[in-house]
Design a protein around this nucleic acid. Structure first.
Length: 509
RNA sequence: GGAGCGUUCGACUAAGGGUUAGGUCACCUCCCUUUCACGGAGGUAAUACGGGUUCGAAUCCCGUACGCUCUACCA
């Protein structure tokens, strides 16, 4: 019987989580849940120099927003902790020592300056069998010298000793058989001079200790996979190694190459899941959440970048994704990110979502804009009226602010050219009728009745409705958009309607 | 330079030897709408190239081109 499925997402806390990262989390999560397995978050904070405070919290917050909550993590705990690699430092040394004992790793005393010099001196320098005997390490130096260096606390790193003339291969779940000639792979550093492991040692040790069954990561890791396979072979046995799946990259929309934060800034769309404030630069990078994306839409669109179920279906809930997900339908090739399509997904999700729920999400955007909502029920109603013309949550501001306050800008230039005294008289009469209704206690009326009354008055003034609808709309909305004119009147009520007519009349006179 | 991976409309993708190569976004046209959207109906548009294998290839094989990733005491 197969062991319980356990997968992990292992980011380093160096900044905001970008699209590719979240998609990796998503696939991990979907695979785990599809197989009744567990999803673990492990923080790879072994690089002290790149650590950014707040980044780990940000990652947890992002996963929570997306609904991709881990079963085990630094925050949630779990039986295989600690879940921060910096807190597991001692464990790695043990395995590095074991490798040395086995003869599969060695001490290297070259300083970073030595290495720089070598790389300059020898084009395409590789720390591997071709050059390692010319370097300063426990393979090239005598035992006495090495012992002496160690005794004097000379800084050293531990490197893997990659074997000669072997083929290392793995069965990637997505790519199939992938193989490498060991003569082409170099002796990667396993343990750094500060005693911290590099990624290479840490993934293998932690995946083993945390009983990971399937290891997903971006395609950019494929070239270093042979090192990991070798490590598994030396340390725990190939039969214990998790199944690898190297996910396709998410590419920039124009040209080629991996999507970067820079592309988002250049092209005007978010790349991070949520706003990321970098404490080192004091800069905030915009996120999908703050741009007004729904988490449901964000997850949905990410899932469609590199996976599909073989049908034409594009709209998926998380549960549907979990039910339908399978690795053999994940693509090999990268997918270019298309912001227009992303917005389309969001628009579809806005249309699908309950007005009540939407109201709660729109409210913060209104608050920020200073639009006051006195009656929550009114907001819900308005949202229902305008939701189908909104792609992003902030669109609700432009699409519905006139329901809450009179428009500040009136597009009189669209009225003025065809404006005359007859039309002016008409609107004065209309306002008068509305006033008298208010006087008799009527606050508002159904749109159909308003329209009928309007047309009656139009006929009386010997005008055409078509000439008056647009001016009326602009008086109410400020511009040429929005739901039906009389639906708007019904919603904002007679009193506001009169005020807006009168204000516009003033501007036009 | 080396190694690895990849390549279907502009973009995301379907078709796992037999379809007029399908769907969605974007774009265009029309309808609906006395506005803008939504919705509906159409349209433009693709198998990188060259060889095989086969009755038959987007699909299998080989080569070429192009692209990407990696080539750090970063992940």
């Amino acid at each position: 019987m197969d062991a319980k499925v356990r997968v992990r997402f292992a980011p380093s806390p160096t900044g905001g989580l970008h699209l590719g990262g979240v998609r990796t989390v998503l696939f991990n999560y979907l695979f785990a849940k599809h197989n009744n397995g567990e999803f673990i978050l492990r923080i790879e904070d072994t690089d002290q120099t790149r650590f950014v405070s707040g980044a780990e919290q940000y990652i947890q917050d992002t996963l929570a927003w997306c609904g991709l909550v881990p079963d085990e993590s630094p925050l949630h705990g779990g039986p295989y902790g600690p879940y921060r690699q910096s807190e597991r430092k001692a464990m790695y040394k043990e395995y590095a020592d074991k490798l040395i004992e086995q003869g599969n790793a060695y001490y290297a005393f070259d300083t970073p300056e030595d290495l720089d010099a070598k790389r300059k001196e020898i084009p395409n320098f590789q720390y591997s069998l071709t050059h390692r005997m010319g370097m300063k390490n426990s393979l090239s130096l005598s035992k006495e010298v090495v012992d002496e260096l160690l005794k004097n606390n000379t800084p050293y790193v531990i490197r893997i000793k990659v074997p000669e003339n072997e083929e290392v291969s793995l069965e990637d779940v997505i790519r199939g058989h992938v193989s490498f000639d060991t003569n082409m792979v170099d002796d990667k550093v396993l343990l750094k001079a500060d005693g911290m492991p590099t990624y290479h040692l840490a993934v293998v040790v932690d995946d083993h200790l945390m009983k990971i069954t399937h290891a997903f990561r971006g395609e950019e890791w494929l070239p270093s996979a042979p090192v990991h396979v070798l490590l598994w072979k030396y340390l725990f046995g190939l039969d214990k190694m998790p199944k690898w799946a190297h996910l396709p990259l998410i590419l920039k929309p124009d040209g080629n190459g991996k999507l970067s934060k820079r592309d988002g800034e250049r092209l005007g769309f978010p790349v991070f899941a949520m706003d990321w404030f970098d404490p080192n630069t004091n800069n905030t990078t915009i996120g999908f959440k703050e741009r007004g994306f729904l988490p449901e839409a964000f997850v949905n669109l990410l899932a469609m970048l590199g996976w599909n179920d073989g049908t034409d279906k594009e709209m998926y809930t998380m549960d549907e994704l979990i039910a339908g997900f399978s690795l053999d339908r994940v693509h090999k090739g990268g997918a270019k990110f298309d912001y227009e399509k992303a917005k389309w997904f969001n628009a579809e999700w806005i249309k699908k979502m309950d007005n009540d729920k939407l109201a709660g999400l729109v409210q913060p955007f209104f608050d920020k804009e200073g639009i006051e909502v006195h009656d929550p029920a009114y907001l819900v109603k308005v949202i229902g009226l305008v939701k189908e013309r909104c792609h992003l949550l902030p669109d609700f501001i432009t699409q519905s602010s006139f329901y809450f306050k009179a428009p500040t800008e009136i597009d009189t230039s669209s009225i003025a050219p065809k404006w005359d005294a007859k039309k002016s008289d008409f609107f004065k009469a209309l306002a008068k009728i509305y006033s008298s209704k208010i006087a008799s206690g009527i606050i508002t009326e159904p749109a159909v009745e308003l329209e009928a009354a309007f047309k009656e008055l139009v006929a009386k003034h010997e005008l055409k409705a078509g000439e008056l609808m647009l001016p009326f709309r602009i008086m109410l909305v400020g511009s040429k958009f929005g739901p039906g004119v009389f639906e708007i009147v019904e919603a904002i009520a007679l009193k506001n309607t009169i005020e807006r007519i009168e204000y516009s009349l003033q501007l036009l006179s």
